[in-house]
Structure formats: C-alpha cells, structure tokens
Simulated scan of single mutants.
Amino acid sequence: MDRLIYTAATGARHLLEQQATTSNNLANATTTGFRAQLDSFRAVPVVADGLPTRTFVVDNTVGSDFRQGAMQTTGRPLDVALRGDGFIAVQSADGSEAYTRNGSLKVSENGLLQTAAGLTLVGENGPIAIPPDAQVAIGSDGTVSAIDTTQTQPGPSNVLGRIKLVNPETRGLVRGDDGLFRQQSGLPADVDQGVRLVDGTLEGSNVNAIDAMVNMISLARSFETQMSLLKNAENNAAKATQILALN
C-alpha cells in the first residue's frame, strides 16, 4: 500500500512535468532550428529508516534530439542553415557565448549582424559590422562579405569577418532557459573549420508534430491511470479500516 501511494503520486506529478515538455516541443514545431527535448522516467528508492518499501518516480531530462530538421529554401541572402552537425555562436543576453542553429539573420540598427531574436553573432575576430547600403553575402565557411551598392558600377566585395562556427560534443551541451545551448564546462567551444553553411536556406524544427500529439494523449491516459491507482489505494485503506474496526 505504502509503495503504491508513493509511486502513483510521484508518477502523476512527473507525468504533468513531461506533459509540459511535450507541449513545449509541440509549440516549437515550426521554430527555426529548434531541437526537441527528450525526457524519461526513472525509479528512485526513498532512503530512510526501516524497510525500503517506498519508491519515487522521477522525470529525468536526458537531453535533446540533435537530428537535423527539414531544409526550407527562402532565397533570402541573410538566411543560412547548417549542413550537417554544428552550431552558430552568438552572444547571449548575459554576455556569455551560446550556440544556436537558427540561421535567420538580420542587420541591427547599429549595423551589427544578429539573429532574428536580436542576439549578436560572434565573429572569429569579434562582432561583424555591416556598412550601410551594402549587399551582404555569406559564404559556406561563414565568411561575410559586402558589396557597396551606392556606386554606379558594383565594386569588389569586401570581407567583413567570419561567423564563428563550432561543433562541440553534443553530450557536453546543456540547453538554457533561453533555448540556447552552452557547454557544461562554461568554456567557449573551439572553431571547427569543417562546419558548413547553406545560404538562402533555413533549417526547420526537428519536432514531429504527429508524434508529439500522440505522446500528449499517451501521457494524459497515463495520468488517469495514476489517479485510478490512488483511488484504489484509498478504497483499500477504507476497507482495511472497516475490518480492523470489526475486530
């Protein structure tokens, strides 16, 4: 009885937490470069005096799904997608270096190359400044060049910098509350010359909306099962009390 109550109660609680994770994945099914979050359940015995009869159920975040999403051609010069593994380095809101696969870029009011969310891209030699009235092109190796469009005849392209592209071990990455990835060590990742970009293309989310919906239904039914187990435990306890009262 004791084991049933603890297992069912904690199972119901963490089913709700996993439901929240699945809902977040489903909400980001159309977010550029999003990586689905993975969860799993595990049993944890309660360490206390007496017999080890009580066990908790814990929802454990095991990581993220790093499989590549579908490529979507946009034709926009400031849209880039990573071909294969790798990440784009950006400066997060707290000033630290973080990593994303969202390649929807823009030029800020101050002329800095940023993501669509307003995060400044990290260049190999610092932030990349874009001059006004310039046509920007991004090479497969992350090199950013611009051509002055104010002249009658287009001049030569000028290299403005190179986007920092990295490919750290995914096992050593953690996802922050802002959706960006960072190394567990807190140190910036090294530049990887093998990472390549595709211009005029965006990578979609790798969340399968159908699988996420089916998972949500399955979690809802599992929650109902846990509630039924708790109800059975209550009924069993009531019957036991009646028997003891008769004695």
Score class of each variant (00 low, 15 high):
45 P>H: 04
27 A>H: 03
201 T>C: 07
114 Q>R: 09
22 T>K: 10
60 N>A: 12
35 R>T: 00
73 T>Y: 07
120 T>W: 03
181 F>E: 13
33 G>A: 03
150 T>S: 11
15 L>F: 10
84 G>C: 01
97 E>L: 11
23 S>V: 13
106 K>D: 13
28 N>L: 09
218 S>A: 15
204 G>H: 01
188 P>H: 08
57 V>M: 14
239 K>F: 13
159 V>R: 02
203 E>G: 04
168 P>H: 06
148 D>W: 14
162 R>V: 01
174 V>P: 09
113 L>T: 11
145 S>E: 01
38 L>R: 05
62 V>H: 01
230 L>F: 08
57 V>I: 13
143 T>E: 04
161 G>Y: 00
85 D>A: 10
49 D>K: 02
72 Q>P: 00
213 M>P: 05
208 N>H: 02
212 A>Q: 05
179 G>W: 11
245 A>V: 09
130 I>C: 04
184 Q>K: 14
221 R>K: 15
150 T>G: 07
231 K>M: 08
72 Q>A: 01
141 D>Y: 02
160 L>P: 04
243 I>Q: 08
151 Q>T: 14
55 T>G: 01
35 R>Q: 10
101 R>H: 09
220 A>S: 15
156 P>N: 08
204 G>D: 00
230 L>E: 05
138 I>D: 00
168 P>N: 09
107 V>E: 12
231 K>Y: 09
229 L>I: 12
185 S>D: 12
185 S>T: 13
209 A>S: 08
162 R>W: 01
180 L>F: 01
148 D>G: 14
100 T>M: 12
119 L>E: 10
166 V>G: 10
94 D>G: 04
103 G>T: 02
